[in-house]
Nucleic acid binder design. Structure first.
Lengths: 220, 220
DNA sequence: ACCTGAACACCGTTCAAGT
DNA sequence: ACCTGAACACCGTTCAAGT
């Protein structure tokens, strides 16, 4: 075939196919040869559009993070934004974007923040918190801790870890896990409940800290 | 050589060598051939002791999680344990265990909770929280949310993501990231500060919830 | 039981060759 | 510029063969 007059591939087509493959069959299913086959080309063709496989996955990760809603940090001028509400809304949107594509999360979570969508997100959160009255050092920390929590919650399902077999949980070994084998069926409920409760606890705790800051008390 | 009179390998030796290799050269450096070479045997030998490579990494992950201190949940009978202090101490020990071996964290964080050390940990936390007066459903959630936060914090360094090159952060794109290129040098400080602040916020928020529970107020 | 080399079906990536 | 097949140096895993 050699070079066609109209390119068969584009970065966009590759990223779309890669995301579909990750979603359908997992991160391990994405090999350059397999992905190329999915696109009807041969393996090395991809290297005309991306320098490495990791660069492809970076682009996939970026489109996923790009789905996160950041509008809650863009407030009308002069308004003090309601930062606790903004954090809650952002946290939920962030988690929703990741859990929509759970198989890419392990790659996404370790990867560098160099990806544009991640930077835009860090920028928006930082700006929103500073505008709300948080000192810059605190604003940085808030962005980081939220990322920790959301990424951790999307990464390893807590409940998914427990298998359905009661025999695994010998009460002699694990005195409190007697009902643990029931967890898989409640999996999503447990994970979502834990996320929601943790998100609220985090924001409530930050509100306490904010209050102490306002009152001029020393804060660590 | 064939079979030696004294086995050359053992599960322990393999796990120790694998952890050393992961620490020294990263997760990607661990191939069965490379690991076997490190142990002075040929690749397939490992399959006499583990069924798959993932099983080896599971064992590595388990020894890392096994380093977490859980003693704060074992209280003298009759005592109501100081659960906020216990969560703080556990969270710090948990994070310390993971950050001591950062390269295994991506594997560890996604993997199943089937690993014994992870189960022991879930059991201890659940037991400790229930003993402190938390309803079982809440105790489960607390274990999960703490895991989210700690795993997330050990997994992707927030600060590490920012590269040292100021040119990357065009103020037109990221109006608030002007100083972001300074972050790498403060990397550990930022990550540890965010972890510590987040941990306190989380526990503070839980204390509020606990108070509401005691007062008989409805809690989501 | 526990090690070996050979073999199978894969990888990511490079490169010269084609248009 | 953009695709191809061939090639390189790898993978994880299976298996028959050795003691």
């Amino acid at each position: 075939m050699a070079r066609p007059r109209k390119p068969l591939l584009s970065r966009d087509r590759i990223v779309t196919a890669a995301l579909a493959l990750v979603d359908a069959e997992g991160l391990a299913a994405v090999s350059t040869r397999r992905l190329a086959a999915e696109l009807g080309v041969s393996g090395p063709s991809l290297y005309n559009h991306f320098r490495t496989k990791d660069e492809i996955l970076d682009a996939v990760a970026d489109t996923v993070v790009g789905q996160v809603d950041l509008s809650m940090f863009a407030t009308a001028d002069g308004d003090r934004p309601d930062w606790p509400e903004a954090l809650l809304a952002w946290g939920r949107s962030y988690r929703a974007a990741l859990t929509a594509h759970p198989n890419i999360v392990p790659f996404l979570a370790q990867g560098p923040g160099r990806r544009p969508a991640g930077l835009r997100q860090a920028d928006a959160v930082f700006g929103g918190m500073v505008e709300a009255g948080w000192p810059p050092a605190h604003a940085t920390r808030i962005g980081a801790m939220m990322r920790y929590f959301v990424a951790g919650s999307a990464l390893g399902s807590f409940a998914r870890g427990f298998v359905g077999d009661p025999g695994v949980y010998d009460p002699a070994d694990y005195p409190h896990l007697g009902q643990a084998h029931l967890l898989p069926e409640h999996q999503r409920r447990v994970d979502e409940g834990a996320f929601e409760a943790g998100l609220r606890a985090l924001v409530d705790g930050l509100a306490l800290q904010y209050q102490r800051l306002r009152d001029g008390e020393p804060v660590t």
